[in-house]
């Protein structure tokens, strides 16, 4: 197992494996988007309380979920990087932080487009919204920190520590709708119990969530390959790869 991980984490192997995975995740991503969009925009009936405005859920929930999933993955990568000094972990952090920030921004802005017709306001200092905004600042902090420290190794360590400290915000975001009863509605999806949504509305939501996950994976793999090319351009295998 350890050997396998070490082998996979070697930039050369990762570069090749990523190259074969990317076309498949792209196709899967496109199919999931197709199903999710048709199901969510056309086939699902309007909500009895929110009318057609509820359809924003199909872009809002996946964005918000991904903003947290990416963060958790990055915090794990940060631990791996600090403890085992695996180069690939820092590459993943470097390329995923901007994507995480983009999903956080999307969660906030699609939420605003949902909040305006439903709550009558674009923004409210509700616990869920505020903690998600803090998440955006943490992502921007990681990006800024990396940009500000010229030495790659110090930048990697500083951003890893910031990522690990910032993980406290994730449970706050997740449980905020249960802890503080403010404007944001409660959980729609649960893995353990019955979800509070009809199947015709639920299936496209899962499809969109999976589509977003596939999208993120594909983008991270493409950007990680770019970053490997940039960092290892002097190495033998890259020169051999580029020659043919």
């Amino acid at each position: 197992m350890w050997l396998w991980i070490n082998k996979f984490a070697a930039p050369k192997n990762f570069y090749q494996i990523a190259g074969t995975i990317i076309p498949w995740t792209s196709i899967l991503c496109a199919l999931l988007f197709l199903y999710g969009l048709i199901g969510g925009l056309i086939l699902a009936p309007p909500d009895y309380q929110q009318g057609d405005a509820f359809r924003i859920i199909y872009v809002h929930v996946p964005s918000a979920l991904l903003s947290m999933l990416i963060y958790i993955s990055l915090a794990i990568a940060a631990v791996i990087n600090l403890v085992w000094r695996i180069k690939l972990a820092d590459i993943i952090i470097a390329v995923s932080a901007p994507l995480g920030a983009a999903f956080t921004f999307l969660a906030l802005s699609t939420g605003a487009f949902w909040g305006k017709p439903m709550w009558g306001t674009w923004w409210v200092w509700d616990a869920r919204l505020t903690s998600e905004l803090i998440l955006l600042f943490i992502y921007l902090g990681v990006i800024a920190l990396r940009a500000a420290i010229p030495l790659q190794e110090s930048a990697a360590r500083a951003s890893a520590i910031l990522l690990i400290v910032g993980i406290v915000n994730i449970p706050i975001i997740h449980y905020s709708v249960a802890w503080w009863n403010t404007l944001h509605q409660g959980e729609t999806l649960t893995l353990t119990g019955a979800s509070l949504i009809a199947p015709a509305m639920l299936h496209p939501l899962w499809a969109m969530i999976l589509a977003f996950i596939c999208y993120a994976k594909t983008i991270i793999l493409i950007r990680a390959r770019t970053e490997i090319l940039r960092r290892e351009k002097q190495s033998q295998w890259i020169q051999a790869f580029l020659r043919n």
Binding site: L41, D52, I56, V59, H60, L106, S109, T110, F113
Partner: peptide, 16 residues
């Protein structure tokens, strides 16, 4: 028309 919510729904999808 999105049941009268066209601006909000299409803006959210558009930006995403």
């Amino acid at each position: 028309a999105m049941g009268g919510y066209s601006f909000y729904v299409w803006s959210a999808y558009g930006i995403t």
